[in-house]
Design a protein around this nucleic acid. Sequence first.
RNA 1: GUGGUUGUAGCUCAAUCGGUUAGAGCGCCGGACUGUGGCUCCGGAGGUUGCGGGUUCGAUUCCCGUCAGCCACCCCA
Length: 433
Amino acid sequence: MKPKALPGFRDFYPTDLALRSHIFNTWRTVAHGYGFEEYDGPPLEPLDLYTTKSGEEIVGQLYSFRDKGDRDVALRPEMTPTLARMVAARAGELRKPIRWFSIPQLFRYERQQRGRLREHFQLNCDLIGEASPLADAEIIALAIDVMRAFGLGPQDVRVRLSDRRVLTAILRYRGVPLQSLPKAYEFMDKVERMRREQLEEFSSRPEVFAPATVLDLEEVSRIRGWEQLESELGRSPELATTAEPLRQAYQALGQMGLAEFLEIDLTIVRGLAYYTGIVFELFDTGRTLRAICGGGRYDHLLRDLGGVDLPALGFGMGDVVLAELLKEKERMPADVSGIDVFLAFITKEDLSHVLALAHQLRDAGLRVEYALSPQAVGKQLKLADARTARLAVVVGPDERSRGELILRDLASGAQEAIAQASAVEIIKSRIHG
RNA sequence: GUGGUUGUAGCUCAAUCGGUUAGAGCGCCGGACUGUGGCUCCGGAGGUUGCGGGUUCGAUUCCCGUCAGCCACCCCA
């Protein structure tokens, strides 16, 4: 049996790593553009960092074990608890608002499927210490601009935007009892993909939502866009007040020119229990993939987790679904592999000159390769071609006796004799010019 | 964790009703081409048909189990 990577874990071959690097580079560039600073924490954490405050789903998916010091530990399944701990430890000295991002590798023991593995990298962006809706707009704009940086527009991806406070107020106004709100959230979250039996199950117990009805919930779930939300909010002045933060964030995003990406959709609830305000998810417009990104405001999490009461919000964006999306939309990075110059030699006596020149060219910042064992020139050029080298240098006894080298442009096939003494300068200018 | 479905070379796929030595293209290596790459032609390596068991004279093919991938649940990135 051939050894294989564990299920849900990935080997990154050079072409795979090229894509991953492209994703990481883009993430970093956009995050830096928003003034975010990068941080990181340990991939292995004390188990109780997750068991005490994270949702039950996450705990059920933990990669956990006991270490040699009898500590219960877990591979991190999410970054937020680590972030909360780090911020809490230095909350006093950190200038607010804190703009931090990280690209952690996260682990969850669950059955893998397309777009969901047991290990993945996730861009985490968090804004801590600012309660204003402008912060919400800022974090959503950042997520959108990551998409734009990959060459994706509103025809490719959309943000589905909601606010838990607004949803709660609407549901309450329609008559959903306080104790039935969790059930109502579940309904909103699942209504889109519910099968008939599940729908009937809700309908068969009208007392759960009474005096509201399942029909009320369905109506609320069908609200799309600001216009429709506005007419729902028009039912009561209090509803309009509750929706003020969402309105301000929505307006700010419009003023940034990102309105085309936005879709108000109250069925975005998000499973994680700690969200307290605006929540959002990024989807591909074709809806063939899982959510590309999800996040929202979690104003009490730092208090509960780290003991420091600061408003906060953020999002996570995984590399797996994103890579699927980039493939689907043909936004893969151009191939940047290959070398600049390949040095070929004719005789063993030429080798020392190749080694010297190779080193000079590498010192000059060029990507250089040569054959590591003597072989026919034809073969050496074949390798040069396979490496997609732009130039080839042929060092032979005849030219050397004249103090020259042959410089060949592999794209055009043109070649010329150049003086050995000025070879580095000439080659440099050919590559850069 | 539950249900369904699919596993043949590095990749994409063939192989008649269960039949004798499991093939092709691409890729890889070599040769034609010992001082010039791409193209072409020729050759080679590479398979325990995912693994284990069963039925059969004979299994890539049928059955069972298992592992892995995919899909739907669950949940999420």
